[in-house]
Design a protein around this nucleic acid. Structure first.
Lengths: 137, 137
DNA sequence: CTGTGTGCAAACTCTTTGCATAAGT
DNA sequence: ACTTATGCAAAGAGTTTGCACACAG
């Protein structure tokens, strides 16, 4: 069961044009093995190391960007100090909790953006990010 | 006329609890002297220096944060590599043009965010950022 | 005068890169 | 074997901080 999951991940990576190396498979398992996640490079590296994997932080950075380019991850611009990557690539938005820098998904269907003006000539909308910032009451 | 504008700016700064020093007044003039603006520290510093002011980059950073805390500016999280400050502090949103990293205001009335789920306990919404990312057609 | 602000350079954080080594196919 | 990925350490951007000097009130 676990073994077949690992094989699936290898297939996913291969299909994305990425060699399923030990590091990439390990990171993919952490990322996609348990529901939707929001991680920074630092967080993911910490998890990998704690789970006994030997991966360098530089490789985590590289891998996150490769996964993003392959469409397996989406980057979320929230705080400016660190890049968050989201394993949920479907249409949705985010609560951002300022006090601890954490993210919570908001289903895409919950928010409707209406009455947007026409974008300038020669440009098209690639994506609309809605970030709802939360602070303590 | 120009002199009275400068006096007004001094008053604004004083009212915000900030001494109207030469540097702060000069930066305020650049920021608030000509309609709504989106600047990074780097950009504003460049303008100040080019217009003959002696201001250090560190002071520009400090000043931008002081103005932000005083409610004269709003920070916009878009690209993650650099902090943008917006002189328009009313309710509005942004087009972000990925190719050159520039921002365009979208009037707040143009976008309606509907059907937001309740935020988690003990947290309240401080602000909703909508960033419409634009790419070349 | 007194306290606050400024400038400079150094420190710091997050991220990327170059190059020799290791691993996948 | 051949190619691509990895690790490390160094470099790089953007931002902040500490401290001596300068300036506003």
């Amino acid at each position: 069961m676990l073994q077949s999951r690992e094989k699936d991940l290898s297939e996913v990576l291969r299909h994305a044009g990425l060699r399923p190396t030990r590091q990439r498979v390990a990171l993919a398992k952490l990322l996609f093995g348990s529901g939707d996640r929001h991680v920074t490079a630092e967080i993911l590296h910490g998890e990998a190391v704690r789970s006994g994997q030997r991966v360098s932080l530089a490789t985590v950075y590289n891998t996150l960007h490769q996964f993003k380019q392959a469409g397996l991850l989406r980057e979320v611009a929230v705080c400016g100090q660190c890049a968050y990557f989201d394993t949920n690539i479907s249409n949705h938005n985010h609560y951002f909790i300022e006090s601890d820098g954490s993210l919570i998904d908001i289903p895409g269907s919950c928010i409707r953006v209406d009455g947007l003006p026409e974008p300038p000539e020669h440009l098209r909308i690639s994506h609309i990010d809605v970030v709802v910032r939360l602070v303590k009451k």
